[in-house]
Design a protein around this nucleic acid. Structure first.
Lengths: 213, 213
DNA sequence: ATTTACGGAATGAACATTCATTTCTGAATG
DNA sequence: CATTCAGAAATGAATGTTCATTCCGTAAAT
C-alpha cells in the first residue's frame, strides 16, 4: 500500500490531487452556481479537508479561475486539435459540430460551466483572454470560408459565429432543462439547419452539398 | 408637492413603490448576479430602506421570483400581443424577430435577467410554469407552419424553437459582451439566416400553396 | 528526526432578516 | 380650514446565520 503511494513521485501525486479538486469544483459549481456554493461542499466532493483545498488554491476566486481555464482548455483541445481550419468545407463544419456534440455529451459539466454568465465578474484578465484563443481561429475559418464562396458573405464573421454558437448552446440548454430530448437524428437535423443559416445560397454551383442523409 | 403625493390614493402609491423596488432589483441583479448581490444595494437603488423592501416582499427569494415573473410577463406581452400565431408566415416571423429586437434593446436588463442560469434554483413551481406560457404558443405556431409547408418538417417544433431562440440570445449576448457590434443591417441578416435555418427548402411549390393566405 | 501535507474546528466578515423606533397619512374634530 | 391623532408605513441599527479563510494539532513522507 505504502509502496504504491511512495512509488509515485510527490509532484505527480500533488498534480493528481489538484486535478481531483478541480473536477470536484467543476461538478459542484455546475450544479449549484458560483456564488451559490460554499467551499466546504467542494472539499467534501473532492474527498479532502477544506484546509487542503486552500493549500492548492489561494482563494475561491482563484479556484474558479482555474476551473474556467481548465474547462476552456479542454474544450479548445477537443474542438480544434488536428484540424485544419484554414481549409473550410462542409465536412469540416460537420466535424466541428460532431466534436461540439461529443464534448457536450461527454463533459456536460464543463459545457454548462462555460456557459454560465456569472463567472465574468470573477475572471482575471488572463482567464478572459483564454476566450480569444477559441474565437480567433474560428473567425479565421469563417473568413476563409466566405472568400471560398462556401459560406454566405452576408454575415460578418463574428456574427456568424455568435449565431451558430448560440444555436448550439440553445439546443443543449433546452435538453438539459428538459424542454426536449435529442436523438442522433435530431442532432443531424439541427446541424443541417445551422449550416443553412450560415452557408452560401446565392451561387448554387459552389455548393455540391452532399445531403447524404 | 404634498398635493401630488396626496392626490394619488394609498393603494396606487403602494403599487408604484412595489414597482420601483422591482425595477431596482432587476437592474442590480442584471448587473451583479443573484447570489452576488446583497439586499441593501437593492433597497438603496430603489431609494428605500431595507426594512421597507421587506414590507413588500417576504424574502430575497420572493423578490427574485417576483422580478422573474414580472420580466417574463413583459416579454410575453411585448412579443405576443395582438398577434395571430396560428397564421404563420414569413411576415409573422419578421414581426416576431423585430419585437424580440426591440425588447432586447429597450429593456436589456429584463432580457439579460431572463437569460441568467442561476435563477432556476430559486424559482417556485409557479414561476417555472410562466415559462410555458411563452413556449406553448410558439410551439403551436411552428406546428401550423410545418403543416402549411412554410417551415421545414425536419425539425421537431421544440427543437426549431430552441435553435432559433438560442441563436437570437447568442447574438445579443455577444453584443453585450462586446464581441461584436450590431447595426440594423446585421440584425436583418441575422434574421434571414435564422429563417433559413428553420424554413422549408424542399418543395418550393408548397410554399405558395398555403402561404397565399 | 525533521519536514511537509492534511483536516476540520475556530475566526471574523458579510449577509438576510427582524424589530423597536420614527415618520407619515388622512379621517375626524373643532 | 387648521389641528389632532390613531393607525399604517418606513427606517436602519441589531440579530443570528452562513460563509471564506485561517490555524494548529496530527499524520504521512522523506
Amino acid at each position: 500500500m505504502t509502496a504504491v503511494a511512495t512509488a509515485t513521485p510527490a509532484s505527480r501525486r500533488e498534480a493528481q490531487k489538484r486535478d481531483t479538486i478541480l473536477r470536484a469544483a467543476l461538478k459542484v459549481f455546475a450544479e449549484s452556481g458560483l456564488h451559490g456554493t460554499p467551499v466546504p461542499p467542494i472539499a467534501a466532493e473532492a474527498g479532502v479537508g477544506v484546509g487542503t483545498l486552500y493549500r492548492y488554491f489561494d482563494s475561491k476566486e482563484a479556484l474558479i479561475n482555474a476551473v474556467f481555464c481548465d474547462a476552456k482548455q479542454r474544450l479548445q483541445d477537443h474542438l480544434l486539435s488536428d484540424l485544419d481550419l484554414l481549409n473550410p468545407s462542409r465536412a469540416l463544419f460537420d466535424t466541428l459540430w460532431a466534436r461540439l456534440t461529443t464534448f457536450a455529451r461527454q463533459d456536460p459539466e464543463s459545457f454548462q460551466f462555460l456557459e454560465m454568465q456569472d463567472h465574468h465578474s470573477y475572471l482575471t484578465p488572463h482567464s478572459r483572454s483564454q476566450e480569444q484563443a477559441l474565437l480567433i481561429p474560428l473567425g479565421m475559418m469563417v473568413i476563409v470560408g466566405q472568400r471560398n464562396g462556401l459560406l454566405g458573405e452576408h454575415l460578418k464573421p463574428d456574427l456568424a459565429i455568435a449565431l451558430f454558437w448560440g444555436a448550439f448552446v440553445g439546443v443543449f440548454k433546452a435538453e438539459r432543462l428538459n424542454y426536449l430530448t435529442l436523438d442522433d437524428d435530431d442532432l443531424k437535423r439541427a446541424r443541417d439547419a445551422c449550416w443553412f443559416a450560415i452557408a452560401n445560397h446565392n451561387t448554387p454551383d459552389n455548393q455540391h452539398r452532399d445531403a447524404a442523409q
